[in-house]
């Protein structure tokens, strides 16, 4: 993607005032506290479960933001990272150990391995060729998950994944699992924030702005792309692990192209290059979908329409608009 207004949001604004920075931190800390406090505010079990799913999607959407927003690599097959991890974590939990940390590590390692292998091919590409090839890889994984019945359960998927355990104690579904998910989301957010604000993250922005020029000033573009691809898949793997424990099973539909489309649309609608925006997008998506699908058959049509309109008229997403308002509230003093 060429340099556009949204790049301005990414590059450190020289005129950013101290007060706005403090206010942003207060806002982020406040939202983190609010997310952690939800179970104690008398929310219904149904609401908690739905919000758990939304936060899992938030982790997944952040992982896609690393590619789309920070490196300019638009992946059309990001369901692969998530879906593959649901199988890896699910099979491990069913057969060896349901320990949350162990399962997560296994899923992350498996995701990293696949990301490395596919990365050897896809990091040669960018733009459209990258988009299409990632889509194809995801379709291959989908096909494998359907065909390899003895290992993946075919179209039925994995059924009967046990509850996760944490330090030898079973995590109760509902509030406890929600808190585990929320804590994971916050940890992931803080870690990824560090990554995108590091010199490595700034180098990614340079690649995003112009790959050829980045290469010309001596950046090893392919290696950077490979590292961020692996990191993105690992983060997607965390989301996949949580998801398989939430649903107590894995399903090949997690690898389907529609799922890749959903997460890409969520990330773009939420606002790419912000990490925070995709989380907002996920919460909006999960709750609106829940309300709408039960009474309205044309959900897929409407969602496609919303996506088209967003790409045409609102490419910086919800977070882009929110950021503009935020800047009004805390104007830079000259």
């Amino acid at each position: 993607m060429a340099a556009s207004p949204e790049v301005e949001n990414l590059v450190e604004d020289a005129s950013k005032t101290r007060s706005r920075e403090v206010a942003t931190r207060v806002l982020l800390a406040g939202s983190a506290l609010l997310v952690l406090a939800v179970p104690f505010l008398g929310a219904s079990p149904f609401f908690i479960t739905l919000l758990t799913e939304a936060l899992i999607f938030g982790i997944w959407a952040m992982s896609l933001d690393l590619l789309v927003g920070y490196t300019g690599l638009v992946s059309f097959g990001h369901a692969a990272s998530f879906g593959f991890a649901t199988y890896a974590a699910g099979i491990f939990a069913m057969n060896i150990s349901a320990d949350f940390f162990l399962s997560t590590i296994v899923a992350i390692a498996a995701a990293a391995a696949v990301a490395f292998l596919t990365g050897l091919v896809v990091t040669r590409l960018s733009g459209i060729a990258f988009a299409i090839l990632t889509l194809c890889i995801c379709q291959v994984l989908f096909q494998i998950s359907v065909v390899w019945r003895s290992f993946t359960g075919g179209l039925d998927g994995l059924i009967g994944v046990p509850l996760p355990t944490l330090f030898g104690r079973e995590v109760e579904p509902g509030e406890e699992f929600y808190l585990l998910t929320a804590a994971t989301l916050i940890v992931c957010y803080l870690l990824l924030r560090r990554v995108v604000e590091s010199p490595f993250g700034k180098t990614l922005l340079a690649i995003r702005a112009n790959e050829d020029r980045a290469a010309a000033i001596g950046i090893d573009v392919r290696r950077h792309k490979l590292v961020i691809l692996i990191l993105s898949w690992m983060t997607g793997g965390v989301a996949g692990t949580l998801f398989v424990f939430l649903k107590a099973g894995a399903n090949p539909m997690s690898l389907y192209w529609i799922e890749s489309g959903n997460i890409l649309a969520i990330t773009i609608l939420g606002g790419i290059g912000t990490l925070f925006g995709p989380i907002i997008g996920s919460i909006g998506f999960i709750f609106i979908r829940d309300q709408v699908t039960t009474m309205y058959r044309a959900w897929q049509f409407s969602f496609g329409l919303a996506f088209v309109l967003a790409v045409l008229f609102m490419p910086s997403g919800i977070a882009g608009i929110a950021e503009r308002i935020w800047r009004r509230l805390w104007p830079a003093r000259s």
Binding site: I258, G261, A265, A298, W299, Q300, F301, S302, F303, G304, L305, F307, V308, V311
Partner: peptide, 8 residues
Amino acid sequence: GLSFMITG
């Protein structure tokens, strides 16, 4: 997005 719409 259009394919989503038309498939839907």
